[in-house]
Design a protein around this nucleic acid. Structure first.
Lengths: 187, 187
DNA sequence: AATTACATATACAGGTCTGTATATAGATTT
DNA sequence: AAATCTATATACAGACCTGTATATGTAATT
């Protein structure tokens, strides 16, 4: 991928998260990225296409990062589930944390027929599915149910952290997750 | 309050939730409300002032509704806490449900210095405080901690329901809430 | 009947937005 | 040296946005 294209994606992602998607014009993006609109529209057919790529990249980066963390630092399958929120905490409390793309995007584009909303919804589904696979490996019966509950805690904590940095919500999300996981494991 | 002003508030609230705040122009609002911009700007100094009033009214209506439900249908303090998510489920699954105002608003206005963001943040804090007071009455030690966890579940479920109607997230949020509450009560 | 209060109708100023058109500069390749 | 590729610089069309100015209508009150 072109260096410039990547720069545009990185800058756009940051601006979307910190200022909102609709509030961020392409003029601002190219100014911060140090390029021009002509170049942006060479790599992206429209602003919507740019948004979709930003979302896709953000989700992919997060999933890759999380999966690497889990496979590198755990051995037993049940361990993955229990350490999940440790890594999520690491991610949320990092200074670079800017929120979860699909959460904000779905709020800014509430219409269910909007492509951006649909991608957000799909990413949320995939993340839940990923947690569910961890739960299945850990031998949990209602894996989808637990995955849904954990993803609620996750999305709630990210939401809280987006609303007020340093809220400490993730600490309590972690505690709640532990209770729910332990309960599901002993059943 | 003037009938027209109320009509504008109701229409604006609905449009903000279903199409997004930034994507909804005042022209659309007055067209749907069956009035004109002159009237709108007589009752509201600016679009921002309208947004703030819509948020305030939405939060007040919800809090009033919830509090009435709880005081009418419960006797013991601990009962309130346990029935909390029953009424939240009733609210979320109602056909009129359009999401929680402050969740979407904080996503569309991420800047912490923005008045709309600040009001959203304050409303989130107040709701958490309300749950905490229920927990205190129920004799729970770490009332604030449990309240935070329950509000995470709540915001996560609302987020999930906004993203995909009929996701059933609230059912599992309810189960998770029961586990957390029971655990906190027996400590 | 005249005044007052409220709402409508319409137009527009000034700004911002997306997306494109045109011309230019620099670097690499042939 | 000429051609090609990539990016820049700049301007602009067309649409939409907020907020206001002006003129008109209509109902209630005095």
């Amino acid at each position: 991928m072109s260096l410039l294209k990547n720069k545009i994606l990185v800058v756009a992602s940051d601006l979307f998260q910190t200022r909102g998607i609709n509030s961020t014009g392409v003029d601002t993006i190219v100014a911060v990225a140090g390029t021009t609109k002509m170049t942006l529209y060479k790599y992206f057919n429209s602003k919507e296409a740019l948004i979709l790529e930003v979302l896709a990249k953000g989700h992919q980066d997060f999933q890759t990062w999380l999966n690497d963390k889990l496979t590198t630092n755990t051995r037993k399958p049940s361990e993955k589930l229990q350490k999940l929120f440790d890594f999520i905490e690491e991610w949320v409390t990092s200074p670079d944390f800017r929120g979860m793309g699909f959460i904000k995007a779905s709020a800014e584009f509430p219409n269910e027929e909007n492509p951006i909303h649909q991608l957000s919804s799909e990413q949320s589904r995939q993340f839940k599915q990923y947690i569910s696979s961890l739960a299945v490996d850990a031998g949990i019966q209602d894996a989808d149910g637990l995955a849904l509950q954990l993803s609620l805690l996750f999305e709630g904590a990210v939401q809280a952290e987006q609303m007020k940095r340093g809220s400490g919500a993730i600490k309590y999300a972690k505690k709640a997750a532990k209770i729910l996981i332990d309960g599901a494991l002993t059943n």
